[in-house]
Simulated scan of single mutants.
Amino acid sequence: MSTEPRLTPLPADEWDDGVRHALSPLLPASHATPDFAGNILGTLVRHQPLTHAYLTFNAHLLRESTLSARLREVAILRAALVSRSDYLWDHHVPLAQRAGLTDDDIEGVRVGAAADGVDAAVVRAVDELAESKTLTDATWALVREHLDERQVLDLIFTIGCYQVLAVTVNALGIQPEEH
């Protein structure tokens, strides 16, 4: 994995209405600024149509998903971890805490030993999808004990969405924001 950025965020003087439109599925115009958007979105807007399409999908998963915010963050954290994306892990730990995960819950997700049954099912699903790109019948049955069919679809798409984002962050060498 690159330690140097391969693409950097679009310079502030190049932000225009096209950039704001690209970010609009996720960010209101008032927040479509280089400082607020951060390094991921600031880099992705180098390809505005792709960014708009991806963020439309991502916004559904963040705002319209049938998964609870808590369960969504379990899936995202584990996807970030198995994709070796420290950037996404670091960004989503505070979101997971706001969604109700305790430090012990987050550690369980990190080590693959979630204490909660539904969390454990989600961790197992993320791991299998990352490794084999499918779910075993046993994991499918376990996930279905906890989730209805729409939730299962949202779960699988959330995992895949964040795996794609992790691959992008890693391949582009997107750097953490300086605070």
Rank of each mutant, 00 (worst) to 15 (best):
Thr102Tyr: 03
Leu101Asn: 00
Leu95Met: 11
Glu145Thr: 12
Ala130Lys: 04
Asp119Asn: 13
Asp137Glu: 13
Gly117Leu: 12
Leu101Arg: 02
Val123Trp: 13
Ala96Val: 08
Gly117Glu: 15
Leu95Asn: 09
Thr136Pro: 14
Thr139Gly: 12
Ala96Gly: 14
Asp119Pro: 11
Leu153Ser: 11
Ala114Met: 08
Ala141Ile: 02
Asp127Trp: 00
Gly117Met: 05
Thr134Ser: 02
Gln151Tyr: 07
Ala115Asn: 14
Arg150Thr: 12
Leu129Trp: 06
Ala115Asp: 12
Asp104Ala: 10
Leu153Lys: 01
Val122Ser: 02
Gln97His: 15
Glu131Gly: 07
Trp140Leu: 06
Val118Cys: 13
Leu129Val: 09
Leu147Met: 14
Gly108Val: 04
Asp103Ala: 15
Asp137Ser: 13
Glu145Ile: 04
Val109Ala: 05
Asp116Asn: 15
Asp116Gly: 05
Arg150Ser: 15
Glu107Lys: 11
Trp140Thr: 08
Asp119Thr: 07
Gln151Thr: 02
Gln97Ile: 14
Glu131Leu: 06
Leu101Trp: 15
Glu128Asp: 10
Arg144Thr: 12
Leu142Tyr: 00
Gly108Phe: 06
Asp154Tyr: 01
Asp105Ala: 13
Val109Gly: 03
Arg144Gln: 13
Arg144Leu: 11
Arg144Met: 09
Asp103Ser: 12
Ala96Ile: 08
Gly100Glu: 01
Thr134Asn: 06
Gln151Asp: 01
Val111Tyr: 13
Asp116Ala: 13
Leu142Gly: 04
Leu95Tyr: 09
Ala130Glu: 01
Ala114Gln: 11
Asp148Pro: 02
Gly100His: 03
Ile106Glu: 01
Leu153Asn: 05
Leu135Gln: 01
His146Leu: 04
Val143His: 02
Glu145Trp: 00
Arg150Ile: 00
Ala114Asn: 09
Ala99Thr: 10
Ala115Thr: 14
Gly108Lys: 14
Leu129Cys: 04
Arg144Cys: 12
Thr136Asp: 10
Ala130Trp: 11
Gln97Cys: 12
Arg150Val: 07
Val111Pro: 00
Val118Trp: 03
Ala99Leu: 09
Arg98Pro: 06
Ala99Tyr: 12
